Computed example of a mutant assay.
Amino acid sequence: MHTNQTTLENFYAAFARLDSGAMAACYAPDAQFDDEVFSLRGHREVTGMWHMLCNLTKAKGADVWKLTSSGIEADARTGKSHWEADYRFSTTGRMVHNVIDGVFEFNEQGLIIRHRDRFNFWSWSRQALGTPGLLLGWTPFLRAKVKAQAAANLQKYLAQRNH
């Protein structure tokens, strides 16, 4: 097994126990992260997102949190994963089961430089947002609104951490 596969296994094990510090240690200083909601550049933003999400889950949903990962593979340059998360969406209190596939790129030091997660936004929005997600989750309008709110929440969280 390549050491980058171990990095990914450690990353998801840390995520399962909501250990954002251990997750952050897997990323390079110039890391990039993209999914259906976030587009982040640099260690501060990428790891700040994980800190925020883990802290919210600990505060508002640790009782229902569950993460499983599978299909983790990596070589010297790239990796991939499949993971599923069950959690309470902090904004609405609604339960979500999200199915995600991740792809990764690593630097020579074995740190993640690019992380791209993909999931079905409409499926997520129906669960997380209820009727608005059901009716509008497929539209660019709702996706843009969710992305803008998530970005604002992260910037507010990062600003509070600097004080």
Rank of each mutant, 00 (worst) to 15 (best):
G61L: 03
E36I: 01
T6Q: 14
A159E: 14
F119S: 05
S125T: 09
A159D: 13
R116N: 11
V96R: 06
T139M: 03
T68C: 11
W124R: 00
A159C: 00
T57F: 00
I100F: 03
Q149T: 12
A74D: 14
M95V: 00
R44D: 15
H2D: 15
N55G: 06
D117P: 02
N10M: 07
S81I: 01
A151S: 14
R44F: 09
A14G: 08
W50L: 11
D63N: 14
E73H: 10
F106Y: 04
N162D: 15
T7S: 06
L56S: 04
H51S: 10
T131C: 08
T92G: 02
R118T: 13
A13W: 01
F104A: 07
L154V: 04
L129D: 08
K58T: 11
A128C: 08
K66T: 03
E105N: 08
G133N: 02
A31P: 10
P132M: 06
A144R: 13
A14R: 01
P132G: 10
L8Q: 06
A128D: 01
K66F: 12
L18H: 00
G42P: 13
T131P: 00
L111K: 12
V103G: 08
A128P: 03
Q127F: 02
G48R: 02
A22T: 13
I100N: 14
E73G: 02
W122M: 10
T3A: 12
H43M: 06
S125M: 02
D30A: 15
H2A: 14
N162V: 06
A16F: 08
D34T: 15
R88M: 01
W124M: 03
R126Y: 04
Y12V: 05
W122S: 13
G71P: 04
R44V: 12
Y87C: 03
D101Q: 08
L129T: 01
R41P: 04
N4Y: 03
T139S: 15
F89T: 00
A144I: 01
H82A: 13
A85L: 12
G133M: 02
N10T: 08
Y87N: 05
A85R: 00
N120L: 07
Y27S: 08
L142W: 01
L129H: 05
T91D: 00
L129W: 01
L134F: 15
L53R: 11
